[in-house]
């Protein structure tokens, strides 16, 4: 007599067949397994042992979330989300309320019109430039994209370091004064960089980034201003503050967005577009 394999027993336990097949075959397989279990004491014993073992691993009961947990998640998330309408405005309101096919057709029309416009503007510009040759330029300025790339790199590194500091703050234990003192030192170092980044992003039309850097500034300033390092009460207050504003999450979101921009910038630089 051919005994059932452990895999067949496992899938019998979970009410499925060991072979991934269609419904009819599945139930036929399950029936055969059941028949075998009735007639074979050895397999029945093995099945019982398996069931006992798996019953020992009870489902994990997650800690209860408060009633307003969903609202709390939303409050943390909302500042990072851009309304869909605004995104669509970036496409000149293209195809609002239209089907996919119609949107594609309009897209092509818009695309062709834009291409013509750009070509026309380029041609006129060249003509105008040849008529009015400027005097010799003495200073050659660094191309704007290079500066932009540098800002993105600095910001990306700053957010990366800030994220690590916030993770450390989140997991910091009050009974470790050395760690708390190290946190204050790191905050002091990051505070200067944060203020430079804040100045750079002012007027860059990125309110989410500006707001997050403002919040980060407040938190870093508080951490840095504790002369003897962070005591237990200060640590708990800062952790609460960080959690209530979901600062770590916001920094994480921004860091991932910036690092994508950084990668894109690198590609452009490597591609010799500048």
């Amino acid at each position: 007599m051919k005994h059932l394999s452990e895999e067949e027993l496992v899938w019998r336990h979970y009410g499925e067949s060991a072979n991934q097949s269609e419904g009819a075959n599945q139930s036929e397989g399950a029936n055969q397994t059941d028949e075998h279990l009735k007639s074979c004491a050895q397999c029945a014993e093995a099945f019982e042992a398996l069931t006992r073992d798996l019953a020992e691993i009870a489902p994990i009961d997650p800690p209860q979330r408060e009633e307003g947990y969903g609202q709390r998640v939303w409050a943390a998330l909302a500042p990072s989300l851009e309304p869909y309408a605004r995104r669509k405005r970036a496409w000149l309101g293209l195809g609002l309320g239209l089907g996919r096919g119609a949107r594609m057709r309009w897209g092509l029309v818009y695309g062709a019109a834009l291409a013509l416009l750009v070509a026309g503007a380029f041609y006129s510009g060249r003509q105008w430039e040849q008529q009015r040759k400027p005097p010799v330029t003495a200073v050659r300025q660094a191309p704007a994209p290079v500066k932009q790339h540098v800002v993105v790199v600095v910001l990306s590194d700053h957010l990366d370091q800030s994220e690590r500091l916030l993770v450390e703050l989140k997991h910091a234990e009050p009974d470790s004064p050395e760690a708390a003192s190290a946190l204050s030192d790191q905050a002091r170092n990051l505070l200067v960089a944060n203020r430079i980044c804040r100045q750079d992003v002012t007027g860059a039309d990125d309110p989410a980034l500006a707001k997050a850097l403002d919040r980060l500034d407040r938190l870093l300033a508080e951490m840095a201003s504790q002369p003897g390092g962070l005591d237990a009460a200060a640590l708990a207050r800062l952790q609460d503050e960080m959690n209530s504003e979901s600062l770590l999450f916001q920094v994480r979101v921004l860091r991932s967005g910036i690092s994508n921009r950084r990668k894109a910038g690198k590609t452009r630089l490597n591609g010799g577009a500048i």
Binding site: G70, Q71, W74, L77, A78, E82, P83, A85
Partner: peptide
Amino acid sequence: AGDKEAYGALVA
């Protein structure tokens, strides 16, 4: 359609 706040209901 542009109502970002509607996502709050799904999140909740």
